[in-house]
Design a protein around this nucleic acid. Sequence first.
DNA 1: GTGAAAGCGCTAACAG
DNA 2: CTGTTAGCGCTTTCAC
Lengths: 342, 342
Amino acid sequence: MQVRLKDIAKLTGYSITTISRALAGYADVNAETRAFILQTAHQLGYQPNGIAQQLRQQIANAIGLIIPSDAHDLNGDFFSQLLHGISAEAAEQHFDILICSALPGEEEMRAYRRLVGGNRVDGVILARTRRDDPRIAYLRAKKHPFVVSGRAAPNEPSDFPYIDVDSQAAIRMLVAHLHSLGHRQIGLILPPPDVAYTGYRLMGYQEGLAAAGLPFCADYLQYGDLARSGGFHAAQHLLSTQPQLTALIACNDLMALGAISAALGRGLRVGADLSIVGFDDLPAAEYSHPPLTTVRQPIYGIGRRLAAMLIGLIRGDQSAHTQIILQGELIVRASSGAPQTR
Amino acid sequence: MQVRLKDIAKLTGYSITTISRALAGYADVNAETRAFILQTAHQLGYQPNGIAQQLRQQIANAIGLIIPSDAHDLNGDFFSQLLHGISAEAAEQHFDILICSALPGEEEMRAYRRLVGGNRVDGVILARTRRDDPRIAYLRAKKHPFVVSGRAAPNEPSDFPYIDVDSQAAIRMLVAHLHSLGHRQIGLILPPPDVAYTGYRLMGYQEGLAAAGLPFCADYLQYGDLARSGGFHAAQHLLSTQPQLTALIACNDLMALGAISAALGRGLRVGADLSIVGFDDLPAAEYSHPPLTTVRQPIYGIGRRLAAMLIGLIRGDQSAHTQIILQGELIVRASSGAPQTR
DNA sequence: GTGAAAGCGCTAACAG
DNA sequence: CTGTTAGCGCTTTCAC
């Protein structure tokens, strides 16, 4: 079965130590010896036993990612892209990724204890932070390296390394965009209140309205699940109770797509009778009909940089402890246009 | 930092061996001793070092999943759901999941060698098999446990454990459905030819046509990427070169959504002027506009069962070596209807 | 019931 | 340049 250093040692006549050093590329090995050893190792198809290396070196060479299990259904594309970025960077730095899906709550914390406490990973990446997030409390107490996709809620301290998109500015931008098209009655579809970033998006909306000289109306707000269905139902509700609305801002693309579906189902022409805009720029946004006006968030890049930061922290590079807020880019597509009354 | 067995031993006065046995639940430990040890361990917040357990027991307690990196963008929702199922089962059986994204090719094979050859995982799950798949050849040669989501291409032997949906029957069903609505000119949007399941879907189409007494026309076929863009461009092409088509079958939902977008963009009423149907039943299908007629594939369940099979194989349960073909369920929604000419 | 000792496969002082 | 030795933290015979 598995080829061990011992096997190469037996075959070449050198000691296990020399084999190890030759393979690891240490300088103090005779060039010919090294060549011979490398060749033999290659012939035997030697692959170092990762577990043994990890035990010996006291590092797992792995990072953990615990995904809220509802996220798969809610926002699979987002996590998939984030994971893509993370794994690209991890692969380059020879790190593995340990994945766990768990429901927020006790199950989730058990997963963290197993991965973190059990030394299976050297650091973890957190996503979709919640208000008063117990995971952050745990990792902070453990002093275990971690980085976060997104900040803490507005009124909580974000005293950890993170990368976030300035969603406050993004929503502000969307309000300004709609206002410049002529919209005066703009509804907002928000994520659930316990999601940390919900507060930022609401603030951005209020600031946007203020900047445009528009009044804030609480009846123009509706909360919904982070998915198409959430946007669909929220839009249904807003459109029937507030028919004067000419535009809807959804706090992410999936909700926006659900809202489009609701609007079309009511016979509205999206982009004319009703403008709808989102946030994320998932692949789905480009091919929806009409294509979705949105603010682009470089999800892949965020995943990549998060992984790079985390690996930096693991290696003890204190300069990796940074907090980054990215600006999104407004992508105007046909789902938003000048308001028209039928 | 980390609490070790040694620490508990020191504190309780028992030997490491006894601590280990008490924690592992062996019967030959005095009940009081055990209680005392368990309590102490709990107080100290003991978490066994997973790496050490793995090295000692020669099992990684982990399964590997190597995701073609293009899949994240192409079909994030699908992989996300599959991953969800896999991780649910794995978590229950106390297995970790090691994820790697790699481009098909040399990079991908290196990832396999590292994970499999390096003993980091006890088994792997393969998805989106290709014709003449080198990963299967490698795993087979290594005699390493693996299970596959999907079969080999029609003309290749599928002599490995797998779970697949009968996509041949699914496409046949879709043809029958469209035929029963009155469609006679039905186009087909296919995945790239190197994807293993493409052959099955084409066969299903041909069989469906034959059963309906319709002629097969090669001009009604178009290949495209496994994504919205692929469906979009394929539909564009079919609709402009074969305007007599009244229905399009897309081989997955994303392509179908792209096709809907293309049709709407040409001013066609989907479900009336042109019927479009897909396959998968991703969350997006339900909320597209119009909602998509499709064949439902229990992706989460497939992930779950794949993980269960693999863990069975790892544990040496030969009865886990099974080959399962599931039947999809036709979900009729508004994107398909009787053909109408404008 | 409990403890001593061996060893999983590897790396890293330390000698020579 | 190369080999000897000592573990990483855990489990598991094997004695007592």
